[in-house]
Write a protein that binds this DNA or RNA. Structure first.
Length: 596
RNA sequence: GGUUCCGUAGCUCAGCUGGAUAGAGCAACAGCCUUCUAAGCUGUGGGUCCCAGGUUCGAGUCCUGGCGGAAUCACCA
């Protein structure tokens, strides 16, 4: 049992026996003792005063005396104002360490079998553009949340939904037909997703020209956009595609294959993967069917032009179009279909959608519509909304060419890691292949940590120049600390200090105790991160842990510790810290090297 | 205009369900390697927690109203 819980129980029991009542538990506020005071665990007694009818100091002393006399874990206490600071018996911390060493949070967590899985959707790329920095945040968040939930004992399925159809795809196809000259990624020597993306850009440029011309003839932007010949052609292509026109489908398949090859390379480079990939092209028809059924049952309605709508005015969300007058689907129709199919596939207990906060409205609407149509599981849907990645000059805009490409940034981070590694020269002795592996690990670790340490729901700024830092609050700093522990273990082994299964009882002090207490926090942080779907909590924790370890390392010699017991204790403290660093980084989707 | 989110040091970010004197990193300056990896450690300076009210023993945190920024309110996805 967690110590805080045990203390809480004791206090509740004590106060209930003295004063009666049944609401003591919610009045008890327990927190860590701040480092400037003596003690480990603090009970804030202010909330209790009204019922106890005692001044703060007396109330705190009374509870303190009781706990010190009753619990062997409590060594002593002191009272400052309304704060009761409990000092925990040092041996308790050692016992905790020994218990923790034997367990493994990642593999021990009893995954409840035969329980509906949590579906985590993330990535969700469009097939008309390569992935960019925003997608990286999405992928890292989704992947990390999946690992955190698994570590917290939940069965997880990672799913991707590829938006492989719709007007934007037709634009790229049309552009390739017109200006592609039969080129392929191979013939052009360009990665498939980038190759296809360049045609989307071409299309948008040409369309802009047409719109501008029409505007000079007196049309408004909106009218011009509709009237532009390229746009009409694109819509014609979409109709042909939905009608199953073989030539159109053939082209679509070919170009999508190019894109998927490109995406796959990026996913591999990023180290993310999926249990299942859904394609919009395979789910939108189900969406249409579900909508048509809803129409028949009268929960949806049709307008005079033949378009189908959901009336969400009762929910304050207005009216939402679900099928165009010509019967073609829109974005949300497809999402309705995908949700229904997924529920059939997995009977999920929870469906998480890791999607940017620009789509907050979309997911509110999706959930309401599914509920309206009559799906009870609509309540299980949760949108994990995250903030945008911005650049110093503002939002990324493809038109202005300020988009930070995913492949580019991954490569850049690796190059920087390469350069710094060469400068340090610490890997000079190792085989080139191993060295490259470590360099990759560090570049990726830097990128992943940089992005995941920020609270997901907040917008974040990415400064390409300053962000590529490897000192201070960074991934490499954490990886370095792990490498340090590994190096220490090698040296200990060389010095004849053998790692035992448990630590002897010593009297830890200073940074030893601080570190020990921080190790004790890990399970609470993990469950908090799982409850909040928030990898940043893990990131912040592992950074603090690494910092704490480095301070300990500075203050307390291990190999040349004063006696055998202390050396053993410090070594095991180090080993376990290294393990938690590795585990935490694993939860963030990052690896740690044994030397760097 | 409606709705939602955000506003903490020069910059990037922490700050758990309200708790003790608001913390890190970067940048600046000053120290620490013949000793376990200096991608490290230590120290100095740096704050009207956007503003104004309110709630209470206590507010960066909760409520109301402003100000500033972002997203969204598409027959784009």
């Amino acid at each position: 049992m967690i110590l805080e819980k045990k203390i809480e129980n004791e206090v509740v029991q004590y106060l209930t026996s003295l004063y009666g009542g049944d609401d003591w538990r919610e009045l008890i506020h327990i927190q860590k003792t701040r480092s400037e005071f003596r003690g480990d665990i603090t009970i804030v007694v202010f909330p209790l005063l009204k019922k106890l009818k005692l001044p703060p100091h007396e109330a705190a002393s009374k509870i303190g005396e009781y706990l010190a006399g009753r619990m062997e874990e409590v060594r002593s206490f002191n009272v400052i104002k309304g704060f009761l600071n409990l000092e925990i018996e040092p041996s308790w911390w050692i016992k905790y360490l020994n218990r923790a060493i034997r367990s493994d949070f990642l593999s021990d967590s009893e995954t409840v079998k035969n329980v509906p899985p949590v579906l985590v959707e993330f990535s969700s790329p469009n097939t008309n553009k390569p992935l960019h920095l925003g997608h990286i945040r999405n992928n890292l968040l989704g992947f990390s949340i999946s690992r955190i939930l698994e570590a917290a004992g939940k069965p997880v399925k990672k799913v991707n939904l590829v938006n492989d159809r719709g007007i934007h795809i037709c634009k790229t196809m049309l552009a390739w037909q017109k200006w592609g000259n039969g080129q392929t990624p191979e013939s052009a020597g360009v990665k498939g997703d980038h190759f296809v993306g360049s045609f989307y850009v071409m299309f948008e440029k040409a369309l802009r020209g047409e719109i501008d011309n029409l505007k000079e003839e007196g049309f408004s932007e909106e009218e011009a956009r509709k009237k532009a010949p390229l746009m009409e052609e694109a819509y014609e292509m979409l109709r042909k595609w939905e009608a199953g026109d073989s030539g159109t489908i053939e082209l679509w398949k070919t170009m999508n294959e190019w894109v998927y090859e490109g995406f796959e390379k990026t996913y591999v480079a990023l180290g993310v993967d999926f249990d299942k990939i859904y394609y919009e092209s395979e789910t939108y028809k189900t969406g249409r069917k579900v909508v048509e059924e809803g129409l028949e049952r009268g929960v949806l309605f049709k307008k005079d032009d033949g378009s189908v709508w959901a009336d969400l005015q009762d929910e304050g969300l207005g009216e939402k179009l679900l099928l165009r007058p010509d019967g073609t689907s829109v974005y949300i129709t497809q999402d309705i279909g995908t949700a229904v199919i997924r529920q059939e596939d997995y009977n999920a207990g929870r469906m998480l959608y890791v999607v940017g906060n620009e789509q907050d409205y979309h997911f509110k609407v999706l959930q309401v519509i599914l509920r309206k149509i009559g799906y009870k599981w609509a309540d299980n849907i949760k949108h994990i909304s995250y903030g945008m990645v911005e650049l110093p000059e503002g939002k990324m805009k493809s038109r202005e060419g300020t988009v930070v490409d995913a492949d580019d940034i991954i490569a850049e981070m690796e190059q920087t890691a390469q350069k710094i590694s060469r400068e340090h020269g610490k890997l000079d002795g190792v085989a080139e292949q191993d060295r490259q592996e470590v360099v990759k690990m560090i570049g990726l670790g830097a990128l992943k940590y940089f992005i995941l340490k920020v609270d997901p729901k907040k917008n974040m700024l990415f400064n390409p120049d300053e962000s590529i830092d490897f000192n201070g609050n960074t991934g490499p700093f954490i990886q370095y600390t792990h490498a340090r522990v590994c190096s220490l273990r090698r040296k200990c082994a060389g010095a004849g200090i053998i790692e035992k299964a448990e630590s002897p009882f010593v009297n830890p002090g200073g940074k030893e105790l601080d570190l020990l207490k921080m190790l004790y926090d890990f399970p609470a942080v993990l469950s908090e991160a799982a409850r909040e779907y928030n990898p940043a909590l893990i990131a912040n924790y592992v950074y603090e842990l690494a910092k704490e370890y480095n301070q300990f390392y500075q203050d307390h010699p291990i190999i040349r510790g004063p006696d055998e017991d202390v050396r053993q204790f410090r070594l095991l403290l180090s080993v376990y810290t290294g393990k938690l660093i590795k585990d935490s980084m694993y939860l963030l989707g990052a690896d740690v090297p044994e030397r760097m």
